[in-house]
Design a protein around this nucleic acid. Structure first.
Lengths: 154, 154
DNA sequence: CTACAATCTCAAGCTAACTTGAGGTCAAGC
DNA sequence: GCTTGACCTCAAGTTAGCTTGAGATTGTAG
């Protein structure tokens, strides 16, 4: 129980501290989001900074980023050495830009929706809601665009 | 080709007009998002207003709503009769409230992130990012909360 | 009437992000 | 030294939101 700052964490401890399931952490490793080393017995040993790393993964997920996307961002962190404040600030910048874009898109779409739903024109040809470029809520292999109900005889 | 306003649309035509795959439209029916009636031969015939209905589904999906959630909203539309402007306005209201909440949560989280990443405290005990109530980006059966790296020896 | 496109149902497959289970190993306390 | 809980790997299962394919039927243009 009394871990020194230099001690490495076993997976269960990391799970307890992040609230992430052990199985999920192993999955993240498989996906290249985290790279613990092993002790003599083959068990994973994590850095204390990996708690922060996983917290970041959780936050990013809440914003709708996929694991590959998160991985890409995390790849900017130093290999081997514990990331410092500057490293995280850097990541934060990148992340915040993406986020701003998402919020803006959401807001814009909402405003358009206000107009369209308000006037009852949803999906009509003069509606501004055609083919929004938004990728924010995109998931899976579903439909790709919006088209209008051309009012041949309204 | 020249459809009168009273004509019912076959599934292919609806697919063409919404950009949604025929298979997806059938899936939506299965999920209770749309309820076409059938002609003598058993083929689906849709209302022209179903174009708008499906457009709404697409938009709602872009905002990250699940099909059951969208279904719930759409259930407020009149059964059998073509929804009118007032009906859509009503739906729009409900929808907009949810959306405002999402945008607010995103913005708030981003602001917190600015602070946390800026000070390098991400996931530390005095960080405001613990356990955000946000459900906006939640998908699947993944981890449920954020916990801190208690800095026993920072 | 015939050909061919569009539609139908039903079952199975796909991707992301995990979880669950089986069967086995490691490590810490007594 | 033994027991027990934490850990290991690997395979298979899960959910959402569809797509794909097989095999059969319907609708329509000529």
């Amino acid at each position: 129980m009394s871990l020194k700052p230099t001690d490495r964490l076993p997976i269960g401890e990391l799970a307890r501290r992040t609230g992430i399931a052990v199985s999920a952490i192993r999955y993240y490793e498989e996906q290249g989001l985290i790279a613990p080393d092993r002790n003599a017995g083959g068990q994973r040993r994590f850095l204390r900074s990996d708690i922060r790393r996983l917290s970041f993964v959780l936050i990013a997920q809440q914003f709708g980023f996929t694991l590959p996307q998160i991985r890409e961002v995390l790849d900017k962190l130093p290999n081997g050495r514990t990331p410092n404040k500057a490293d995280w600030t850097d990541i934060g910048e990148t992340f915040r830009v993406e986020l701003d874009r998402k919020i803006e898109t959401l807001t814009e779409l909402r405003n358009r929706l206000d107009k369209c739903v308000g006037c009852g024109c949803l999906s009509l040809t003069d509606c501004t809601l055609y083919n929004p470029q938004d990728r924010a809520g995109k998931k899976g292999t579903g439909p790709r665009y919006l088209m209008g109900d051309k009012p041949e005889n309204p």
